[in-house]
Write a protein that binds this DNA or RNA. Structure first.
Ligand SMILES: [Mn+2]
Ligand SMILES: [Mn+2]
Ligand SMILES: [Zn+2]
Ligand SMILES: [Zn+2]
Lengths: 157, 157
DNA sequence: CTTCTAATTTGCAGAGGTTGCAGATTAGCT
DNA sequence: AGCTAATCTGCAACCTCTGCAAATTAGAAG
């Protein structure tokens, strides 16, 4: 996504107005690598601009996505996630904390794909599943704590 | 997903009952490559068994998914799609008709992933975007029809 | 075959995410 | 300062999916 000042230009050039609400969202999104949901942005925005409407957040996110300034991602559960990083990249989704990390994958378009059956590919999106570093430590600690405990299988029925 | 007869065994073995509703869904899902949504299955099921409840369809799909007999996919828009093909495969999503095609990709785990930052990957899901064969023909025909039309750019302002 | 009971089915209400709508407000041009 | 199209807001509505409780039933047991 472009910097706030550039977005301002782009919006005006398209006959769109640059309101305080939009400027705030431009700032909150710029360089934001958290892949926030609309609700998450709304929460942050509300703290800085009480009274801003969730509807406005959605509106602005949709506008930015339509302009190609945001990538739209589907988070496994419910809410859509918005990604200001529109460079070619992919994601690693942690099974434990649910966070999405940006990853860069090489030679994606050299993958050998079978059964295409005439389908013409023009892009690819990869989501890796696994555990992020912090969650690995957390799980390691937990299994350490349980080392002396009897397991379910060992319990008397 | 296993064949209906085998699912019946598995369900009974787990103390789950095999009702007519479930049997119908087993049949509708077996070898079904359409990646149907719950609503789609409900529509088909309703035609064959009037009165079946959408709630029951969801329940059975969730049970099957929990047993590992169905893969759960997120269709870009809203509804979850269910996939009885649980072998390792990926998908091609048509931009025009929205259908998902099964594709098989080789050497996925040999991809070079940068910026992992300690993340440990244990699986990958790839969605390719593009146009399926039928939609390519359809679009070719449409552009053929428009060949003699003046474009917007050429219109007198 | 009858009886029994835990599992299942249903219908409906309700949660979560997102959009349509219309009246009040305002950015930005003149 | 005035004008007007674009925007903001609040709310209702929509869609997908789940929780709940009463009615039904599969399948085991006698
Ligand atoms: Mn990203
Ligand atoms: Mn599939
Ligand atoms: Zn994590
Ligand atoms: Zn298509």
């Amino acid at each position: 996504m472009l910097a706030p000042a550039d977005l301002t230009r782009h919006f005006r050039a398209r006959g769109l107005k640059v309101t305080p609400q939009r400027q705030l969202l431009f700032k909150l999104l710029h360089d934001n690598a958290t892949h926030p949901t609309a609700e998450a942005l709304f929460a942050t925005a509300s703290a800085m601009m009480p009274g801003i409407s969730l509807r406005t957040v959605y509106q602005t996110l949709n506008d930015l996505a339509a302009m190609g300034e945001l990538q739209v991602l589907q988070s496994g559960n419910g809410a859509t996630r918005f990604d200001p990083n529109v460079s070619e990249h992919h994601h690693a989704l942690c099974d434990r904390c649910g966070e999405l990390h940006d990853v860069y994958v090489e030679a994606v378009d050299e993958l050998h794909v079978r059964n295409l059956d005439g389908f013409v590919i023009d892009r690819a999106g990869i989501v890796f599943g696994g555990l992020c570093a912090p969650c690995q430590s957390a799980l390691a600690k937990k299994s350490q704590r349980n080392k002396n405990c009897i397991t379910n299988k060992e319990l008397p029925q």
